[in-house]
Design a protein around this nucleic acid. Structure first.
Lengths: 161, 161
DNA sequence: TACAAGTAGTTGAATCTTCAACTTCTCGGT
DNA sequence: ACCGAGAAGTTGAAGATTCAACTACTTGTA
């Protein structure tokens, strides 16, 4: 604790190799996001709106509680609320109040919303392949899956430090 | 081309395993970004502002042409321009016009800017370790480095489709 | 040299996101 | 039954980002 050791865990800099791994990860994740977002623009969707609709489309009855949807789509409740307001105007979703918890409300996908995501999905899949999957060997793909699942669990445990 | 084969490259859906790999990647990259961004908030910096300053701090004379900086920090020229305006008000950078190309301008880091990033850097490194590196074995780290460097090259070649 | 096309950078308006209230309701304890 | 703490969701304002002009300049070419 009181050691003068310059390599104490909390303070040491990244090695060249760590820095490379980190930077290539962060750069690729931004570029992939950007590319997919751009590819979806033709369908008048951002990637994060697509994810909202995708989660909703997979939920039972195509409806979810706002908080659950926010958690799955990885955004704040506030942000989701604003976004649902916009999508509601577009006619893709509706809000419905929850009978068992009067504070609660559901986001419910409409037929029009279902049609919108159905129209975008095939292009989006092509985009995922073209921007990412296609450049991975089978074994790289399973490394990614294994590594990121693990890191994901750690991050979930850390929730806000 | 005219085949009825349902698995034609452009149209086939993702396999369960592809979907897992893809989703874990996209979820982790968002969560990592979010966590690092939150960790930097104590220094009044967003992660993307940090990256602007980091690139600037590593450049010769701590100055860069706006376009080069935008490309390295992975953002539009417009966005960078707005951000530099804000940072200029904070006293972290200055603009300087380019003598050899009269259209051009440089972003130049000030001493105050250098102090700001110097103050944030150690915490940021700890944050990178804690949110990401720490959960990777040595061999996973080199896989990440190898895979993402490769994907990064492909993405660079694709630039806008 | 002169022109068309393209590059560098900025700007303002429209949109989107964050942040901190704020309301309404649930739940556990007493 | 009541109280206090906390959860669900929304809101408006402030701040950030995108988008499409727009100015100013450079470059290739005829």
């Amino acid at each position: 604790m009181t050691s003068k050791n310059a390599t104490s865990l909390s303070a040491r800099w990244l090695t060249a190799s760590e820095l490379e791994a980190w930077r290539s990860f962060i750069v690729v994740s931004r570029r992939v996001w950007e590319a997919l977002d751009g590819d979806l623009a033709g369908h008048d969707l951002s990637l994060s709106d697509y994810e909202i609709l995708a989660h909703l489309s997979e939920a039972p009855d195509r409806m979810m509680r706002m908080s659950d949807l926010a958690a799955q789509a990885i955004m704040s409740r506030s942000r989701l609320s604003h976004r649902i307001t916009v999508m509601e105007k577009a006619g893709w979703v509706k809000r419905q109040s929850c009978p068992t918890d009067k504070r609660g409300s559901f986001a419910v996908m409409t037929t029009k919303g279902w049609n919108a995501i159905s129209a975008a999905a095939p292009d989006h899949v092509t985009s995922i392949r073209h921007r990412f999957m296609e450049h991975l060997t089978q074994s790289e793909q399973s490394s990614i899956e294994k590594i990121f699942k693990k890191v994901g669990e750690h991050l979930r445990e850390q929730e806000g430090l």
